[in-house]
Write a protein that binds this DNA or RNA. Structure first.
Lengths: 254, 254
DNA sequence: CAGATTCATGCAAATTCCTGCATAAAGTTG
DNA sequence: CAACTTTATGCAGGAATTTGCATGAATCTG
């Protein structure tokens, strides 16, 4: 049995809050066999750490971050047209595409129509909808959609990606660095991108200049496994990558 | 159990208002099992915060400036609020939901938030996105997205639905008829809906009056396998169904 | 205009919160 | 080992919040 000390209790309570459930002080007091005051103090401590929102009778999870859609749509507007043009040209007539989620890749979709027999495979519901609106055949990879992330992830999704042989994987980036390679903020999404890379003959990364040199939390792919990076960064930023043998296709910013 | 405190209630009410539905004080009072006065005070508080327009008997959403994204939601807005309210009430606190695609079921999503540990499983990317915007955990069922249809279909999808045990399957309808039962325009989607029915303990159909008596191309479920139909059709339309032993929950059109 | 419904206000009961204090266990220091 | 400090816990009493009810006013409906 666990020790019934503040640390243990608070850890468990924080865990529950993080999972989205509410905490009813009287219930928890009974569960741990301590007085209501003790639980109240635990909640007080959690609030001080910013892990709980205290309400009458217990606590609730901290308010979630602002909804990702607007940010996503706003960002989509800001993707450089030059990047989009170049990426579409690079993709050419390849019939089977693996598309990542994210604003940058999403903005490519409208220009992918018009190729006969093209199939887009994607774990992103946004990309799937965009494809359908442009009459592109689309296969949706299922899985859990994380609260913050934009693509479906999970073992099921990984397996499924393993069953697929695509021509080109088109990935977005949270960060790309000369040593750390391509990186992603979410661990599960990083795995998904690795699986997409493995299932495709070529891997292209499409990303704006602001991601160059950044390192996100999780390593995703080493530079050597990326066939081309399309970006609007200028030469001073891409030079270190070129020295390491990476293929960067830079486009002039307008 | 959820905390029944002003904060929780007001948050949920604000959410419903934001989703465009109106609030009937007496109904909500019953739903939360509190007195009318309490709800009245909640509405008062929401009005003070500028989140509600108080009217006799309840509250209405604040008139919002039109928004470019709104074009897509128009279809959802045309779903009778009474149907939405009733369906949400019928769903209650069920933690695991299987949601069909379509405008009607999509319009339910904003009101499904606020239940702890709720998971929505859906083959519809639209539903998945709507869930994510409302911070509802969602599992996306993968598969091919047909050009016209709104949900992912395919053997893979069917298999996957077979691995799932949900509390309630919430289905839309292309047509529902006393003899032909529930029917769907697309064969693959019909199969998907059958699989969803099989994976859930209860099956609820939510549909507008215009679908009553229609027969779509593909038979999907016999009436006997549907636990409840929620519709705004009047008694003259639903009577033939009731005679056959079906459960229809009719709501008055406003 | 009469009846019914809904709203506003005040009030009492119940619940919960806050503060201070006493006790006990664990750790620290000389 | 003894004395001290720190930490955790439970309890009591007063303050604050929330709730349901009662009363009369206001509003809607036919």
């Amino acid at each position: 049995m666990n020790l019934n000390i503040p640390d243990t209790r608070q850890r468990l309570l924080a865990q529950r809050l993080d999972a989205g459930s509410q905490i009813v002080a009287t219930d928890v007091a009974q569960e741990f066999d301590v007085s209501l005051d003790t639980i109240r103090r635990d909640i007080l401590a959690l609030e001080a750490k910013g892990l709980a929102r205290r309400v009458r009778g217990g606590a609730m999870p901290i308010a979630r971050p602002a909804d990702p859609l607007h940010a996503r749509l706003d960002a989509a507007d800001s993707v450089s047209p030059a990047i989009i043009r170049t990426a579409v040209q690079e993709i050419g007539d390849a019939p089977t595409l693996l598309m990542d989620g994210g604003a940058t890749t999403l903005s490519l979709v409208p220009l992918l129509a018009g190729v006969t027999n093209r199939l887009v495979i994607t774990p992103s519901p946004w990309a799937a909808i965009a494809c359908q609106e442009h009459a592109i055949a689309v296969f949706l990879i299922g899985g859990t959609l994380s609260a913050r992330g934009g693509i479906a992830v999970g073992d099921l999704a990984l397996l499924r990606a393993g069953e697929i042989a695509a021509d080109i994987a088109i990935l977005g980036a949270c960060g790309i660095d000369t040593k750390f390679g391509l990186s992603t903020d979410d661990h599960a999404e990083a795995q998904m991108k690795q699986a997409m890379h493995a299932a495709a003959a070529r891997t292209i990364v499409v990303t704006g200049a602001q991601k160059i040199g950044r390192r996100a939390r999780h390593h995703t792919l080493p530079l050597g496994q990326i066939d081309a990076v399309i970006t609007d960064a200028d030469h001073t930023m891409t030079a270190p990558f070129l020295e390491k043998g990476a293929t960067f296709i830079s486009v002039e910013t307008v």
